[in-house]
């Protein structure tokens, strides 16, 4: 898994690529919490995520909860089919605000 953090407009965009699984989710979690720590709205770009497991989903939930506590927005964008399938199975597709593209989200 690789990730990239960049600023777009008023938001911070965190883009992930590859598999987010038990091995890589600690890095994903750290990147997400760091982005939330910047105090701006966070957009998580999941377009290039080929696989995500429950530990990856847990990182997203934790980042969302942390962002909400600070009154920040955390939204998902361009969610790949594979990631969407897992969010739906976990019944979390309604918990997150999901945008079709990063451009829509920022």
């Amino acid at each position: 898994m690789k990730h990239e953090v960049k600023e777009a407009g008023a938001s911070v965009v965190v883009a992930f690529e590859g598999d987010i699984d038990l091995q890589t989710s600690p890095a994903a979690r750290e990147a997400l919490l760091e982005a939330v720590g910047m105090g701006k709205p966070v957009v998580v770009d999941l377009a290039a995520v080929s696989y995500i497991d429950s530990s990856g989903v847990a990182s997203l939930v934790e980042a969302l909860q942390t962002a909400k506590k600070g009154g920040q927005d955390l939204t998902l964008a361009a969610v790949s089919d594979g990631a969407m399938r897992v969010l739906k199975l976990a019944r979390l597709d309604a918990v997150f605000t999901i945008h079709d593209s990063v451009d829509d989200a920022v």
Binding site: D53, S54, S55, V61, E62, L89, A90
Partner: peptide
């Protein structure tokens, strides 16, 4: 919606 037990649920 806490993540604990999510894996077993899936």
């Amino acid at each position: 919606i806490r993540p604990g037990g999510l894996g077993v649920h899936l």
